[in-house]
Design a protein around this nucleic acid. Structure first.
Lengths: 218, 218, 218, 218
DNA sequence: AATGAATGAGCCTTCATTCAT
DNA sequence: CATGAATGAAGGCTCATTCAT
């Protein structure tokens, strides 16, 4: 099974269609709880209570607590990186759909932000737990290294050749780009999620910053 | 007690001078364990074993497990922000010690990176746990809002007046600045800590990026 | 219902003819599992899996786990003692079919050993569990006291009157006879079942021993 | 460490001197419970209640439930076979302390019966559980094969050479001897422990039987 | 100050059993 | 009949914390 088939597979698993009502409730309760107290700080009995099912029911659907964690996190993260797997992703860049790095960036950022907005609790769990579970880290590290990074790298090199962006190592360019965006997302959802945010405008500013820095000279 | 006195107070607590040998060992073992498995995932008995003390001894020094967490995290985070409290911090900026925002940035960044290098395990615990413990979040949120943010804001406005940097909201400027640096630190220590890093050079690049962006135009 | 009718009744229950395919498989799986792990150490879900049926199916045929145990053990043990109920059993002894105690012994031993060979797993369950379940112990204790013991006693007295065997209490004679045979069967099947055994010859030796002891004098 | 040292070691473990009060009570409660309901049928919470300690206390002394089982059974079984390890055991036979096999038998039987009388609950647990736990079976199988069997074999051969007993394979002689004795012990303690038994006389009868059989001819 | 035995609540998981489909 | 999802009690075991020594 190729990686992109694997991604499709993973995602199917959470299509709510194939899930029983109880299973959906368990998942929701678990997301709530893990997100609020962390994986280790959450107890299966609490999740069961919140889901309105017996504790045994959780273990009928998920053999262990950890399997429940993976069932929550894996498909969502897969969905998050899925766009980087579709064929058109890089093609549109190379065939001049995007003339400039900043156009490309803006589209990707807005699109992924939309996703984050809907799935933040799950992504928060992922971020919190990736440090502690090899089962989480390894598949996504590989996925990222083999696909997302490779594809991004070629895109960056493409724009470097066009003279659009400076010739630092692609890895560095990526890190700067990514951290500018993540540096918006994290406070936006984690610390000040109750504030009013004009995401469109903020992203435009971030893209502007990524391209021309704080000095503002173009 | 003013905030700056409070900071000084906090820091004294971890001066190794005032600590018994056992206490130091407990702290070290706890840092190790919390850092590796998270707070909830660590057991006091494991920490005791690693520290080579009896289980009860931990509770003689720290009333509860959570108090142990705070004893680890609080003084280190206080030390991390301490420079922002000394009088000279902003004065040097306004009195033209730093002519340019980027000079100021470079100095602060290198200096704080040095600190992070030494204290990463503790800071990792802080990052992981801040989401779950009000006792951690609240004092530092306040500290940051009242002091670091305020001071930084005036510095940014200073350079905006000088026309050095664009006139986005100071909060946005700060976020972009900070996330660029944090976006280096986190992969640097969390994911690829075993690689060789030329921190000096990397920070120079980050500062360059923060000022002039990826287009590279000055 | 007389005891001998009851025995016949019991035995009919396991005639494989009257059983559905699933039921047979459940029984086989349960014998396997109980025999290997003991009654308490076996779970109904494991038995269901091994039998290839759903968990609920077991409980359609046997109201409780204990009923399943009895369904396994009772008819086999009944079959084991059944010969002692047929009319001819003692008659043949008294009407000089067997002139000597040892002839009688040899025939019974060989015949019952044949049965044990085929049914050892079930008998092992019986031996293991009889100590823990009144439902198992009581009917067979009664059965044994009322029939097997009584019949045996008269046979022993018969041979004692003929001067064939010494006049210890019949109970003692029985115990010595029985334990000599059981002392062969248990190691034979429990500990060294994979060795080659010449059952015919071994039984001849045991009978010899029971009659003339280790000194070998006749 | 040689086997006989190992035996000594094992036995020390249960010297009640080195045990705390609670530990002794846990052991007693566990013997009671295991003996009555079997290992799998007993719960640690029941044992704790019977011992008058908290459930956690059991696990402070014995890491797992199985370790508790071994702590009960191992030293007692070791004590049971210990006499077969002392040097004088066989020597007395060969140096004509025992002129006849039956004298030797009588002494050993009476002596070991005394032990069984005191320790039957533990030995019952051993008998019940040896079939299910490799940790129990393996060490004692080896112990028996290497020492008890070997020593016994030479004794039997000694008496065979003297013409005292018939020349069947020593293994067979042993089996017959042992099962005659065990065939007394098991009903004696397991089924009819509340009856009055004249052990002295019974053993004399058993020895008589082992030597001269039921025909009674000398 | 330090110990480590003791605690009992709580952990994750498995259990025998029920019942709607 | 057979299924397997659902149950909640009970399982073995670990936890943070206390306290007599």
């Amino acid at each position: 099974m190729s990686d992109s088939e694997w991604i499709t597979e993973l995602i199917k698993d959470t299509e709510h269609a194939t899930m029983s009502d109880k299973q959906r409730k368990i998942l929701e309760a678990a997301i709530d709880t893990f997100s609020e107290k962390g994986y280790s700080g959450s107890s299966t009995s609490e999740i069961a209570k919140k889901a309105g099912v017996a504790e045994g029911t959780i273990f009928r659907h998920y053999k262990t607590k950890k399997e429940l964690l993976l069932a929550i996190v894996t498909p969502t993260v897969a969905k998050f990186v899925a766009p980087f797997f579709i064929k058109s992703f890089a093609k549109e860049v190379f065939e001049n759909e995007y003339e400039r790095y900043e156009d490309f960036l803006r589209v990707v950022a807005k699109n992924r932000l939309e996703f984050v907005r809907k799935q933040f609790p799950v992504l928060k769990i992922f971020i919190q737990e990736i440090a502690f579970h090899d089962e989480l880290r390894e598949p996504f590290q590989k996925l990222f290294a083999d696909h997302v990074y490779e594809k991004f790298k070629r895109i960056i090199e493409h724009f470097q050749e066009k003279g659009e962006i400076i010739s630092l190592p692609p890895q560095t360019i990526m890190r700067m780009t990514a951290s500018s965006i993540i540096g918006y997302i994290l406070p936006r959802f984690l610390l000040f999620s109750d504030m009013d945010w004009d995401d469109e405008k903020e992203i435009d500013q971030i893209v502007e910053f990524v391209m021309y820095g704080l000095s503002g000279r173009k």
